[in-house]
Structures are given as C-alpha cells and as structure tokens.
Design a protein around this nucleic acid. Structure first.
Length: 552
RNA sequence: UGGGUUAUGGUGUAAAGGUAGCACAACAGAUUUUGAUUCUGUUUGUCUAGGUUCGAAUCCUAGUAACCCAACCA
C-alpha cells in the first residue's frame, strides 16, 4: 500500500532534527527580493520551502528581502504574492526584512560594543584593493582600530544622515587574512539616501544581505533556511553573526538550483529579453516566468509535479524540457475539455450529402463520461487539416488520399474520391462520398478505417487567432555557448495563424483548458475579446506520425 | 599559486558495505472513433587509477573534471 519514497537530503536532515528532539516543528521561509518577477527557478524554491512544511509539522513565512531600496519596488511585491498563491501555497506571515531595520540597527550597535565592528572611511575602491585576492591575504584598514566610543558616535551620525553615500561604512571586524573572502571584514551597513518602498525616508543607512538575512531568519525562528549553492561561502558569516549576537540559531542549507534546457533562468537575462523586445513582456507565454507560464496555459499542478519529479540535490544539473512537458500533458490530459479546431484548413465537400442540410452530432467533452457531451454541427462543406490529405498516400498513411477512407471524429466515414488544384498546384478542395450507415455511435456499415481525423463544419465555424510557441532558444544551454546568449534566440518561437473553431468554443472562458483534438492543448489568451478570440497553444500532443516522417 | 562544493545511463534522481532502482527521453509491440491517452517490453550508467573486504557507487589513497568565492547586489 505505502510506496516508500526515498527522502532527499533536506528531508533527511529534518527527520533527524525532529527525531533528535532538536525541534518539535519546523519553520521555513521563501525570501524573494522584490525587484523582479518570479520564474521557474523560484517555483522550485517555493515548492521546496512550502512543500517541506506541508509534509512536516510547521509553517512557511513569506519574507521580502528588501534591503536595497535602489532596485526594489512594491509593484513586484504584488506579482510575487499572486504567483505564490497561484502555485497553490499559503504563507503563515507576510514579512519584510525592512520590518527589522530597528532591530538590525541595534544588532550593529551590539557588535560595535563588543569591539566586533567598526566604521571605515575608505572609499569602495580602496576597500576592494585592501581585500586581497584568493591567494593573498588582505590588509587591515587604518580605521580598524577606532575606539568603541568613536565607532558608536560615527555610526549614530551615519544614521542621522550626517554623511553622504559612500563616505563611511560599517564593517564587521573578523580577519583580513581569512581564506573565505567573505570573512575579511565584510561590509554590513552602508549609507544610501534613498526612499524605501516601505520605510519611506526613515532610514538613510541600510544593512547588507549578510547582515540582514540570517538575522531575519533568527528573528522569525526559522529552523531550516534553504538557499542555493552559491551562498555556501556565506554560511560561515551567517553563523558568525548569530554566534556573536547570541540570537536564535537558524541554520542555512544549500541545494543546487534547477536549470532547464532551451531557456535562460536568471533575472538579469530575462530582463534583457524584455527590454530588448525579444519577447512581449515578463508574462510573454514563451518566458519561463511564473506569469508567462500561467498565460501560456501551464497548470499549477503540473509545475508542482515537475518540481517533485525532478527532486532535490547538490549537483549541477540541466533538466530536459521534455520532463516539464510530460508533467503538463499528464495533467491536461485529465482536465482539459475536448474540442475541434482546424489550424491549417482545406475544404472538403461531401458529394452525396444533401445541400443545406445540417445535422447536430454529439461528441464527448473529456476523457471520461463525467465531462458530458456537446453538439457539433455537420453539413456538406467542412474544413479539415491540410496535412490530413496527401495526393499520393505514403507508406502507413491512415488519412485522406484519393480512394482512401477515413472517419471524421464523432461523425461519418468518408471516402476521398477526387481533389481540385489551383494554377499554383495547391490543393483547393477534396471531394468525398460519405457512408450514411457509418454514423458515429450506431455504425452498421461494417467499414473499417485506420484513421480518425478532426474537422469543423464550414457553415458554422467561428474564427480565432491561434498563437503557437516553440522553445525560446535554439541551443540547450544558451549561456554556455560562445558569445552573447541572445545570439541563440529562436526567431521562430512564435507563429500566429487563423483557425476555424467549432461553434461551442465561442463560449470559452479564461478558466477553461482545451484539447483541440490531435492538435494540442490550448487556452484563451488574456488579450482575447468577444470580437477577436485568441488562443494560446500551451503544448502540442505527442505526435508519433511526425516522428515516423522524420525518420525517413 | 588559495578556499569551498559536486561527480551514478542522453537527462534528472535513488541505493547509508550485500541483486545498481525509479521517472523523462529513445526504441519495439498491443489497444485505440484523437497516429493522443493506456498497456507491455527493450537499449543505455557508478569520473580515473590503485587499495581494504568474501563482497565497494558506498570505506581508504592518489589523481581528474565541473561549478562557486575578491559588488557599498541578493
């Protein structure tokens, strides 16, 4: 009954902590900086942090890491909250590092009083030069020996706004010869005469990441503070501050960020794509942002499943995009409504069907009976997919060709007799004969056909714009290629076409997900209106025939 | 010429000295009124070299490779 799923390394740590009685419940946090939109990489972290406290007793806080007022804005706060909720997670408290500015200031004073921090008057350049290199020790600043009293006075005056940006800075006094560069008297409080999105103009000094993150964790009693691998060197500093400040000992654990093939996942690169207009915005359906994927038609469930299947570890990785698509199709197959749409139309005339007659046929809406049925109109003139006809049938061809019989989904079996071409050689219409006794549901014709295709009645069809997307980049790992990553953008990542859709689709809503039979999964785009219906193709269906063709 | 982290099929992830497993991908077949779904089967792997052991992905030694670290960013 119970399938024992093995634990990832974080779950092992947590189970041990719980078993040892170190904690009775756990607290995690998701700490975005409100300076951009969330992407698939953040989704990983969200699923991890919130997932852990769903699995084990405890809760997760949402904490905005807003210590740099220059780049941060409330606009991002709202989008981040929307994305987390859309993914299906609930935070216990909505918090901000800026909530702790008073406490953080006191912590800095504590450090000064212990002789563990000092005000440095050197310029940024000079401080950098004195830092040393990976192989050479740094040099002590001449201000390192300032008295506690003087440091206290100077720091208070920094806070009071007596100095200009960059004129002075507070540093921890650790070890300028330390092998970990971050321990070489790190900068902890800098002067920025900048308006903050939450604290307004109250402060002109702001703590650096290292002096805010761990302490915020501690203030919130975070038991397991989970971040990505590049923060490993920071852990030593994280622990140092907690020890010297004698505050709640939160612990930091690191995992490898997930990389997806054929896309980029850094905020900086995504921003470039938007600013250089390679995409239409942060929520362009081709973007790996949460908002882009939502618009494209991804379901929260599919993203959660994906994160779960990928697992969590500490090694570098590039995950196949096909796994994400698999999770998407798996979910959509169970939930999407079925409908018919012809994307690249070819006219079909049923020679022996009565002119002006319309039949109301019944077709199923979903993968099982619970979804019910709907009516689709059928008459003498239809649209079928151009690729469902061949002038000369290929080997293993199940679709229309002169003399070949095919079933139209939920309708009749038709035999193709002839076809017309225009002067350019393009097929304009195919003429077929239908078998009245082959009607779907009570077929007494005894005719067996290999293929079933979708269609739309020409006299009742509605028109929609369909936007089809392909991968954003032509190479698996754009950032590891020669030159600029933008050189590898797939210029054919968006194809817009006009489609004939069955009349029931006029009533589609933004909440609906559709499978257009044999063509893929689709959803309404946010730009869709009553007068201009626009569908996004979320993902294609698997196509065994396309693969067959590719082989030969 | 420092320090840190990581190495398991094409990809991701398990196996805590005892049969290298799972998923995706690929391939072959069955079913199918979606060439979808579903079902069955197949191929492919322990970074290298030594050592310990009845037995090593796992322990030891020595290498190799990849990634991260010198922003008043997070």
């Amino acid at each position: 009954m119970s399938e024992e799923k093995s634990l990832n390394f974080l779950e092992e740590i947590i189970e041990k902590d719980l078993a040892d009685g170190k904690y009775t419940s756990i607290v995690t946090r998701f700490p975005p900086e409100p300076n951009g939109y969330l992407h698939m990489g953040h989704a990983t972290s969200i699923c991890l942090n919130f997932g852990l406290t769903k699995k084990y007793a405890g809760y997760t806080n949402l904490r905005f890491d807003d210590t740099n007022p220059v780049t941060e804005d409330t606009e991002y706060v709202d989008s981040i909250k929307e994305d987390i909720q859309w993914l299906g997670f609930e935070w216990k408290q909505e918090l901000y590092a800026s909530d702790y500015f008073d406490t953080l200031y006191k912590y800095a004073v504590t450090l000064i009083n212990k002789g563990l921090a000092y005000v440095d008057d050197n310029t940024a350049e000079h401080i950098a030069a004195q830092k040393g290199t990976h192989t050479e020790a740094g040099i002590d600043s001449v201000y390192r020996q300032r008295s506690i009293a003087e440091n206290l006075d100077l720091f208070a005056r920094m806070k009071a706004g007596e100095f200009a940006d960059g004129e002075k800075i507070l540093r921890a006094k650790i070890d300028m010869a330390h092998t970990n560069m971050l321990m070489r008297d790190p900068l902890i409080y800098r002067i920025k005469h900048t308006h903050h999105h939450r604290t307004g103009n109250k402060w002109c000094i702001y703590p650096m990441y290292d002096f805010a993150h761990g302490q915020s964790d501690s203030i919130e009693n975070i038991t397991h503070s989970i971040c990505t691998l590049e923060f490993i060197p920071h852990r030593e500093l994280y622990d140092w501050f907690i020890e010297k400040l004698e505050i709640f000992p939160s612990h930091q654990y690191e995992f490898a960020r997930r990389n997806l093939s054929y896309t980029v996942m850094s905020k900086r690169k995504l921003k470039q794509l938007v600013e250089d207009k390679h995409v239409a915005g942060w929520d362009d359906p081709r973007m790996p942002t949460i908002s882009g994927m939502r618009r494209r038609g991804f379901t929260p469930q599919s993203i959660r499943t994906f994160c779960d299947k990928v697992g969590i570890a500490k090694r570098e990785n590039i995950i196949d995009f096909s796994l994400l698509e698999f999770c998407l199709r798996e979910d959509l197959n169970l939930t999407a409504l079925r409908a018919m749409a012809v994307l690249d139309p070819l006219k079909l005339i049923i020679t022996n069907y009565e002119e002006g007659k319309t039949e109301q046929l019944v077709s199923e809406n979903g993968p099982d009976e619970a979804y019910g049925t709907r009516i689709v109109p059928f008459s003498k003139a239809l649209w079928i997919e151009r690729e469902d006809f061949m002038e000369e049938a290929a080997k293993k061809w199940f679709r229309f060709a002169p003399g070949a019989s095919v079933r139209l989904k939920s309708a009749y079996i038709l035999r193709c007799d002839t076809f017309d071409k225009d002067e350019t050689g393009k097929v304009t219409v195919i003429h077929c004969t239908y078998f009245p006794e082959s009607k779907s549901g009570n077929d007494t014709s005894g005719i067996a056909v290999k293929g079933t295709i979708h269609w739309v009645c020409a006299t009742h069809a509605a028109i929609a714009e369909v936007r089809m997307y392909d991968r954003l980049f032509k190479v698996e790992i754009p950032s590891s290629e020669e030159g600029d990553f933008k050189d590898y953008i797939n210029e054919n990542s968006l194809t817009i076409t006009q489609a004939y859709i069955e009349p029931s689709l006029i009533n589609a809503t933004m909440q609906n997900r559709f499978q257009f039979l044999r063509k893929g999964y689709f959803c309404l785009d946010k730009e869709s209106t009553k007068d201009k219906i626009i569908f996004n193709r979320t993902v294609t269906l698997k196509d065994a025939w396309a693969k067959e063709v590719k082989k030969s």
